[in-house]
Nucleic acid binder design. Structure first.
Length: 899
RNA sequence: GGGCUUGUAGCUCAGAUGGUUAGAGUGCACGCCUGAUAAGCGUGAGGUCCCUGGUUCAAUUCCAGGCAGGCCCA
């Protein structure tokens, strides 16, 4: 009997599989998409410019997050009617690849050309791997034509940018201290330094001072200065104090000493002296005073610097700009010389200790200080000190010739690069807004940009020098010739051909008239390369999206170079995201976290779930990643997928002729209106780059309005009303509206699942879901639906909640098993009198009977829920007064019609 | 140490120009259904809104200082 009845019920039916099977399904779609030809479009272009990742390993979760965010943005913009231009890039030069190649024993690192070819092969290998890995995530991009910083055309662009900076007067040759290994006679990058303990001679030295503001004494006055590198004293050009520290002037009986107040106790104890404090000065009071060098006949002016501390020493430091980064910056600020009397092998070149190795000179200088009564105290200390990673010898800081971009030199337009950069910030949209504050502070403080490196895997600094007089030939013609050579042969040409082969034959030194030139063998800072990527397109990018570390990195290098060359920023908007951290909010360590490799996530969960996780979290802050969170993403994903499957199943047999929204049943009108409202809000979320809000909205809509309220209610009509009845046509029309809206909302995120589901939709208008655009705002929201939403539905659902709370009590008391077995009496207040004629009480509440009355003495609705005595219809399972012969009147009628 | 930044239910997120009982989804517990079934529905429990101090009639919200994270510097 029940089987026969079941045959008359229209249950959902679809071939859209119950199980996602993403691991199999996703690659099938990738293959299919790859086969499709590129579509032409004259829609307005939207260009998201890709910040190039570094190809020296497989992609990690951070890469995945970055590219998925970009992809969701691009795809959603596409659905807003744009033609997307997304060219992925890779930043292929640089030290990490050099060092990884050097570690390979098979490589001959002595030959630059061979070495560079090895680096090239290494980079290309990882570009290919990363590309495959990104593609597997469903990232849509111009994968066939990525930009690589090693591509000859790109390299030529970079050479051109350098030339234009020269023309703008921004490039200069100067000196800057860098780590230098005196044993290997080479510059070392930070990454090539390892810290080890080292024994140093420390000295506390007197720097005599003839006058001190507000202090009068007949005794000799001196500033006491502590240093662990006495060998740098010959290169001293001044002293630095902290402007806000207090300095005491101490009378020791035979002399007067100036040191930081907070250091005096420790110092007087160490030295066994006592003294009386004559005065206290702030560091800023000392600024501008001039002391004398302890043994050279030269002044030692006093400057202020924030890096000075009173944690050790005397609170006064000696400044040798040729031998320290801090020193260098203070020196730059005050315009002090970069004195650097040390040669390649670490030997002093001038003065009494000329020819002496620096670490041997230190004790000699100490002895000299002692002999001349300039030494206050001396000791031997053990401390962590930088050592060379290759030979493990201690390294020194040594100023070497470098190329710079001037931040504060006016360009032909009269503005400095710094000023232009600061001004440009407000013309750029920063998401989140504090990105502007962040980069602003960095731009304000940054020193001139040192763009040269003493390495081999990079684009050479395109500079030649006159062999006779050493003058660089920085002319447009020379730059053009180098561009041509690089574009034709790649930048390795610099290591293969002589200057004469590269330059035009007529090149003549402007200074001395010589025609013999030699190449400068430095390479460019990789940030200069990636920062030149604006050259790929004549227009600024609409948007860039990178981690917040790029406020110092790429955003800044790109901004500075584009402003110098184009006088406009390279991007209109900058969105930043945070970093991936573990369950405790701590940064990811390489030792653990194999569960967080994108590859494994894709394998065990699927790319759509990884994408859903990315989309569901607020990426402007750091985001946590763990299996638990992926499981949660999977749950939400399945909810959405199931909902879509239910829609598809119940659209089975639908003609596709959708009933217009106003002609639908009120409940249908409401859910279509709701779905449209959510759709419109989701589109705005996408547009405002708040993807996680779109996801929250979507999930809450699916679980709340759709699943709990609408779909549960509409099942009776779908399953039990006559197949072609108007009521069922309305229901199916509604499901079609819902599907159309829902599939669009998820398409930018669940790129595979949306495409897969769309193929099972019988009324699709495009072959791919990814060719669809969003619907116009309010496309399916009528004035009537809006009015009903305002006046009816909130009250109805609030009453539903009341009814269920009351019904739950009956169920707990075992009076009923199901809510279907109840009848409900609703007493409405005057204000809700219009709900008395509401026609859908029964299907909304899913109970047997509903009666409504109005009572002006109540202020809120009152409900009474009681068991009903009706029999259950064996077909529709509702309890109904008309049940006879096991089915209700409606079902009896339907069965007649069907047969 | 400095610049920027984060801290609201177990989790992901909302929210309040300062004002009743701080919300949603998910997870969890209990129950229902077995015609969305490796699904669906209902009810419920869950919060010192990081801490301390200040301003205020009133602070999770504003201010200051801490604590714990993150990025970038030093």
């Amino acid at each position: 009997m029940s089987d026969r009845l079941k045959d008359t019920v229209q249950l959902p039916q679809t071939d859209f599989p119950a199980r996602a099977g993403l691991a199999d399904m996703e690659p099938r779609w990738l293959a299919q998409w790859a086969d499709q030809p590129q579509k032409k479009s004259d829609a307005p272009r939207y260009r998201l410019h890709d910040g190039p990742p570094y190809p020296n390993g497989d992609i990690h979760a951070g890469h995945a997050l970055n590219k998925v965010v970009k992809d969701v943005v691009c795809r959603s913009r596409h659905m807003m009617g744009h033609r997307i231009d997304f060219q992925p890039g890779w930043d292929c030069h640089g030290l990490p690849i050099e060092t990884q190649v050097i570690k390979k024993k098979s490589v001959d690192a002595s030959d630059s050309v061979v070495f560079r070819n090895q680096c090239q092969a290494f980079a290309q290998d990882y570009v290919a791997r990363q590309r495959t890995e990104f593609q597997r995530l469903g990232i849509e991009a111009n994968w066939d034509q990525p930009y690589l910083t090693t591509h000859p055309d790109y390299e030529a662009h970079v050479v051109s940018v350098f030339g234009q900076l020269v023309d703008a007067g921004l490039v200069y040759h100067g000196r800057k201290p860098i780590h230098w290994c005196t044993c290997c006679k080479t510059a070392l990058a930070e990454a090539e330094i390892e810290y080890d303990t080292h024994q140093s001679v420390s000295v506390t030295v007197r720097f005599p001072l003839s006058e001190l503001p507000g202090v009068s004494t007949d005794l000799p006055v001196s500033l006491w200065v502590w240093t662990t590198t006495p060998w740098t004293l010959p290169a001293n050009v001044g002293l630095a104090v902290h402007p806000n520290l207090e300095y005491g002037v101490f009378d020791l009986g035979t002399e007067v000493a100036v040191v930081a107040n907070t250091r005096w106790a420790a110092l007087s104890e160490t030295l066994g002296v006592s003294g009386q404090c004559l005065a206290t000065l702030y560091g800023r009071d000392l600024e501008g005073c001039v002391a004398s060098h302890p043994f050279l006949d030269q002044p030692a002016p006093i400057g202020g610097a924030d890096f000075v501390t009173d944690s050790d020493g005397t609170g006064i430091v000696h400044i040798a700009p040729g031998h320290g980064v801090d020193d260098y910056q203070v020196g730059q600020y005050y315009g002090w010389d970069v004195v650097m009397p040390v040669d390649d092998s670490g030997c002093l070149t001038q003065g009494d200790w000329a020819g002496q190795f620096v670490f041997k000179a230190s004790p000699q200088i100490r002895d000299h200080l002692n002999a001349t009564h300039r030494l206050v105290h001396s000791a031997t200390i053990q401390h962590a000190y930088p050592h060379c990673w290759r030979c493990h010898n201690p390294v020194i800081f040594r100023a070497t010739p470098q190329w710079f971009i001037a931040m504060d030199t006016p360009m032909p337009n009269g503005k400095t690069l710094r000023a232009m950069a600061m001004e440009s910030l407000s013309s750029i949209q920063w998401v989140p807004e504090w990105g502007k504050t962040r980069i602003q502070a960095m731009l304000e403080q940054r020193p001139d940009w040192c763009i040269s490196r003493q390495r081999r895997w990079g684009i050479p600094i395109p500079v030649v020098r006159c062999q006779s007089c050493g003058e660089p030939a920085l002319t447009p013609a020379v730059n053009a010739a180098i561009q041509t050579a690089v574009r034709t042969h790649g930048s390795t040409v610099w290591f293969e051909q002589s200057a004469a082969e590269i330059l035009p034959a007529t090149t003549t030194c402007a200074a001395c008239g010589s025609q013999a030139f030699e190449k400068v063998m430095d390479i460019l800072d990789v940030w200069f390369e990636s920062g030149s990527s604006f050259m790929l397109d004549p227009e600024p990018a609409d948007l860039v999206i990178e981690g917040t570390d790029q406020h110092r990195g790429w955003f800044q290098s790109a901004l500075l170079l584009a402003l110098a060359v184009r006088k406009e920023p390279p991007f209109k908007a900058v969105m930043t995201h945070g970093f991936i951290v573990d369950e405790q909010g701590k940064k990811m360590s390489k030792s653990k976290g194999n569960a967080t490799k994108p590859e494994q996530i894709v394998q065990s969960y699927g790319a759509d779930i990884l994408r859903w996780w990315v989309a569901s979290v607020d990426v402007k802050d750091d985001v946590q990643l763990s299996p638990q969170l992926l499981d949660q993403a999977k749950q939400a994903f399945l909810k959405i997928r199931n909902t879509i499957r239910f829609l598809l199943g119940n659209l089975n047999g639908f003609s596709g002729d959708r009933v217009s929204v106003d002609a639908l049943a009120p409940l249908d009108r409401w859910i279509v209106h709701r779905a449209q409202t959510v759709h419109d809000a989701v589109v705005l979320d996408y547009e405002g780059l708040a993807i996680h809000r779109a996801v929250q909205r979507l999930v809450q809509f699916c679980s709340g309005d759709l699943s709990a309220h609408y779909l549960d209610s509409v099942k009776d009509r779908l399953y039990c009303d006559a197949p072609q009845s108007e009521s069922r046509q309305c229901a199916q029309s509604t499901l079609a509206y819902l599907f159309e809206l829902l599939i669009r909302m998820i398409a930018p995120i669940l790129v595979f699942t949306a495409e897969d589901a769309y193929q099972y939709y019988a009324f699709k208008t495009n072959s791919s879901v990814h060719d669809l655009t969003f619907l116009d705002p309010g496309a399916h929201s009528t004035a009537l639906a809006q009015q009903e939403a305002d006046t009816t539905w909130a009250a109805v659902f609030s009453i539903k909640e009341q009814v269920y709370q009351a019904a739950e009590v009956l169920r707990q008391n075992k009076v009923i098993k199901q809510f279907l077995q109840t009848q409900v009496a609703i007493t409405l207040p005057e204000s809700l009198a219009h709900l008395q004629t509401f026609t859908e009480w029964r299907s909304v509440l899913l109970v047997a009977e509903v009666t409504c009355s109005v009572d002006e003495t109540v202020t809120d609705p009152v409900v009474s829920v009681t068991p009903v005595a009706h029999k259950k219809c064996d077909r529709c399972w509702r309890y109904d007064a008309t049940v006879s012969d096991q089915v209700c009147a409606r079902c009896a009628h339907v069965m007649e019609v069907v047969q």
